[in-house]
Structure formats: C-alpha cells, structure tokens
Computed example of a mutant assay.
Amino acid sequence: MLQLDGLLSDEERQIQAVVRQLMDRRVRGDVGHWYDSGHAPVRDLANEFGKLGLLGMHLTGYGCAGSSAVAYGLACMELEAADSGVRSLVSVQGSLAMYAIWRYGTEEQKQQWLPGMAAGQLIGCFGLTEPDHGSDPASMATRARRDGDDWILHGGKMWITNAPLADVAVVWARAEEGVRGFLVPMSTPGVTAREIKQKLSLRASSTGEIVLDEVRLPASAQLPEAQGLKAPLSCLTEARYGIVWGSLGAARDCFDTAVAYSQSRIQFGKPIASFQLTQAKLANMALELQKGFLLALHLGRAADDGRLTPEMVSAGKLNNVREAIKIARECRTILGANGISGEYSVLRHANNLESVLTYEGTSEIHQLVLGQKLTGIAAFS
C-alpha cells in the first residue's frame, strides 16, 4: 500500500522471494497437517534450510552465509508467514544455539559444532528457561560445580524448542563465580529430554523439557567467553530481533487470507469486502502492518550499522507481536465461522502468536525494559 518494497535493495528482495518460494514448495501445503498431528519433520526441514543457507545466516564463517540483519529479518518474515513453529526452528538454531557458540565459544568449539549446524546436519537447542524460572532467569536453579577438571551439572530446563531431537544443548547454569554456559551433547549420560505434549500452540514445532542429573562434562564444554547473565540475554536479543520481523509474516498471511476471503464471500447479495465495517477493519490492519514493517526495517538498518540496542529490540517485539495477534484475531472475525477451520491459516497463526507473545520476553517484561530506559529505574524487583 505504501510501496515499502522500494526501501529494500534488489538483493534483499531476491532473498525474500527465494525464502517465500521455499515455503510455498515445502511448508504451506503440509503445515496444517503438521499442526493437527503435533509433529513436523524438523530434521528434514533443517537439512533443506541448511542447503539454502538459512541457519545462522547472519553469522560469518563456519559455513554461515554472513547475510545482513535486514536480509535475515526478511527471511524470518517469510518463514513465519508459513508458520511460527518453522521460524522458531530457524531462530533457535541460528540466533540462540549457534550464536552462543559463535559469540562465546572457543575456536575448537566453533569448528566442532557450527559447520554441521549451519548445514542442518546437527540440531541445537538453548536451555535457559526453567519450570519455575521464566521471566526471572537470574533465579535459575540449575547448578554447575567443579569436580577436578570436570564440571557437574544438575537441574532442569523447560519449554526448550528443538530439545527432543537436538544433538547439542547450550545450557546455562549457576556456578560459584556466576552464570556460565555449557555445550551439552544430548547423548551425555544423565541427560534426558522429554517432549511436551498437548500443546495448543506452536504444534508444528518440537518443544521439550531437559533434565540434567549429575551430568559430567569436561572443562572443554564450557563457553569461556560467557560470563554472567548478560551472555544468555545477548543471545535472546538476537532471537527477539527475528521475532520482530517474523510476527509481521504471520500477520501478513492472516491479512492476505482475510482480504481474499472478503472479496469472494457473498452476503446480502454482494461481497463482504464491499461493506464499510469490513473495509475499516482492513484499512486499520494494513496501517499496522506497514508501520510494523517500517519499525522492523529501522531496527535492521540499525543492526547493520552497529547501532541496535536491546531496548530497541524490546520496543520492536512489544509492538509487532502485540499488533500481529490483534490482526490475527480481527481477520478471524472477517472469516466468521470459517475462521476456526484448519482450511484457513488464520486461527493457527493466532494460536501460535499466543506463544510468540510470551516467549523470549513477555509483553510485560518488555514494557518494564522500556520503562527502565525512560525513567532510569528498574521495576523488576
């Protein structure tokens, strides 16, 4: 509507088109079935995404594509336009697990894990959230203690994307010297992963619990540059940036579906698109989509210039996810009873966005992040 594609380079538009074509070919025709069954072919998808360079695409070296932040954001938007769970696979792999290794690991750790993860041959997960510690990771109960040259980890992590099928987990634990990160091969004795069933959201994503029962790791498993809680929080900032774009994709798919439906649905002898109330809904949603895109693009350009701050990402996630879920719900009203049918993507997106609204920082937490920035006062405790 505002011709915002003109703000993108030819290369950026090409990357967006390639990812959209992959979603059309590989995901859209089957994602409804994956959602119904609660199971998606994650490893097959990871292999295909790896071949296209989508995994860790904004990282450099080790088989990663080294793309710009804007290009990565556009890819996330197209991935989530297909399904939030599909985007979560890419985000957790690249912006959480791979980024943690890339940013805080040794050269040996990077060589061991990153090329296989970039190719989709190895799956990673990110173990920060715990059953009783979500928004307050500083209170984590998982502990790491030294035993000679080794480390012993004990505790548990919850709501961990990719955990049931991961090859390696980036696990954060509290040691005597503070929060530390560890690379935990999931085949290590004492490590158990349990898939979380009966999800009503993100059903095309694999989510699990990780139990660490006196897990012994060599000293080489520690991420040496990760010292303190700032390390895992910096990884979350990376992933939240992708959500700023991804949520727009889900909203855009709902919007496109609602526009097409309103033009073909006949009531009182004419398309419901001809009614003023329907047009008002569409106009309002289109404005929020365009504003959200401008916000995401601004953050992407700032990231590429080295100016992006965590508070800026919090503002982006707070706004775009909040507006995306409003758009999904509004589109459902345009579809009427058909809006709850799996034949259409709208309610699937709305249900998925309920999780996106919560994970990697709830709206309330991001409001407090911005409140601290505005007032200089931390209201978290």
Rank of each mutant, 00 (worst) to 15 (best):
T192Y: 05
S37Q: 10
S135T: 13
A337D: 14
L233V: 15
L236H: 11
K51G: 15
M117W: 05
L308C: 00
K199P: 02
A65I: 13
I152Q: 06
L79G: 00
M1N: 06
G342C: 12
E12N: 01
L96T: 05
R146D: 06
V321Q: 00
F275P: 06
A204V: 07
G148L: 10
G116I: 07
N47Q: 15
L128R: 00
T207S: 00
P189S: 12
T192A: 09
G124M: 03
W172H: 09
W151K: 03
T257R: 02
A144H: 00
T362E: 07
Y99E: 05
G156H: 03
K197T: 09
N352P: 08
R103D: 01
Y359W: 12
A141S: 14
G376V: 07
Q112M: 09
T106I: 03
G63D: 03
T278D: 04
R322I: 04
G339Q: 03
N162M: 10
V27T: 07
C125E: 02
F275L: 12
E238I: 04
Q367G: 00
D149M: 01
L55A: 03
G61M: 10
A283G: 02
S206M: 04
A166V: 05
V42T: 15
Q198R: 14
G269Q: 02
G269C: 09
G127F: 06
L353W: 05
I325G: 02
A82R: 13
D304N: 04
N320G: 10
L4M: 10
P41S: 11
L79R: 06
T237W: 08
L287I: 03
P310E: 08
G134R: 14
L55E: 04
N319Q: 11
Y344C: 04
S88A: 14
A138T: 07
R216L: 03
A46N: 04
T142I: 09
V356R: 05
A303H: 08
R146T: 08
A280C: 11
G339H: 04
Q14N: 15
M140V: 09
D304G: 11
K157W: 02
K291T: 12
W34N: 05
T207R: 08
